[in-house]
């Protein structure tokens, strides 16, 4: 149980920090240049999706280990 909690917690912590940095950059970019919204959103989408792959795997492994 503890191992599962540590796996999910650390995975989510890292993803949270990464997502925060990505969203911060994108919000600044769109606020400065709203005409670039499509391109910036695409970059943000790819970044967020790839960052979240690890916590999803961590959740599955945590449930397997429980």
């Amino acid at each position: 149980m503890l191992a599962a909690a540590i796996a999910v917690g650390l995975g989510a912590l890292g993803a949270g920090i990464g997502n925060g940095l990505i969203v911060n950059g994108t919000v600044n970019g769109i606020a400065r240049q709203p005409e670039l919204r499509g391109t910036l959103q695409t970059t943000m989408f790819i970044g967020v999706a790839l960052v979240e792959a690890l916590p999803i795997i961590a959740v599955v492994i945590a449930f397997m280990s429980m």
Binding site: I30, P34, L40, Q41, M44, F45, E52, I56
Partner: peptide, 17 residues
């Protein structure tokens, strides 16, 4: 999950604009 993330990011972008 993919569709949900796409919709959420689109809403965030619309909210900023």
């Amino acid at each position: 999950n993919l569709w949900f993330l796409q919709v959420k990011i689109n809403r965030i972008g619309q909210g900023i604009v």
